[in-house]
């Protein structure tokens, strides 16, 4: 009940700040462009867009959302109610992932005939969105303002994007397998081309491990640096 209410207010908040309009517009624009691409390159570009736009959606927005709530003292009001910090974090993650998944469903329509494993695509994307939102929360907890968040997010985002080099056949190293983004790319590729079950299982386990770690750190950092520290009170 409390959680549902928190998710509801987050979605309404995102709606009123224009997220849904912007994403509808951008997704439709992508759709038009993708429809005009040749088969073959279309799949590559679609998966690329899903990777850099959909999975990083939460990463892009969560910093500004948290810093706004902190700056406007909304967090003060929230955390003197029975709302748990865990519920606050889950609501943020779920609300943003709903938007991301809705956008993803629009973007994949031009390649729907090429998709051989839809559940893997959806579940893989969803886990990745969750990871990046939690990752953003961790950074936001340590950031002073939006530009500060950008600087940190840009650096860490670039490191996270390194496995793209393997996706684009530029460079590969077994080290990439440690990164959650390598797992994301494996699952995205598994959606359109046959992939060994072992690879898929590895990717899911990798994302689950990273998500657990990120959830733990997000909770801890938020508690320490936002709630108790200078932030909320």
């Amino acid at each position: 009940m409390r959680l549902l209410n928190a998710i509801h207010i987050d979605i309404t908040f995102q709606f009123r700040h224009g997220f849904y309009y912007v994403y509808l517009f951008i997704s439709v624009l992508y759709l038009l462009i993708l429809f005009n691409l040749q088969q073959g390159i279309r799949e590559t570009i679609t998966l690329l867009l899903l990777f850099i736009d959909t999975t990083m959606l939460g990463f892009f927005f969560i910093g500004a959302i948290v810093l706004l709530e902190k700056g406007q003292n909304i967090l003060q009001s929230l955390f003197v109610t029975p709302l748990r910090l865990s519920e606050y974090i889950i609501a943020k993650v779920i609300s943003l992932s709903i938007l991301a998944m809705a956008s993803a469903l629009i973007i994949v329509t031009p390649i729907h005939l090429s998709i051989i494993n839809f559940p893997v695509l959806l579940f893989g994307l969803w886990l990745s969105v969750i990871f990046f939102t939690l990752f953003g929360l961790i950074i936001a907890a340590r950031s002073q303002n939006v530009n500060d968040y950008f600087a940190k997010a840009l650096g860490l985002g670039l490191v996270a994007s390194l496995p793209l080099a393997q996706y684009l056949h530029i460079f590969s190293t077994p080290l990439f397998y440690v990164l959650p983004t390598r797992a994301t790319l494996i699952l995205l590729e598994a959606a359109v081309k046959p992939t060994g079950l072992l690879h898929i299982i590895y990717a899911f386990i990798c994302l689950l491990v990273w998500n657990s770690l990120a959830a733990f750190l997000a909770y801890r950092y938020f508690y320490r640096h936002v709630l108790v520290g200078t932030g909320a009170l």
């Binding site: 207010i9 908040f13 406007q72 003292n73 909304i74 003060q76 009001s77």
Partner: peptide, 9 residues
């Protein structure tokens, strides 16, 4: 609190 704020939108 002294410096309150709620959701402005």
């Amino acid at each position: 609190f002294e410096f309150p704020n709620l959701y402005s939108k």
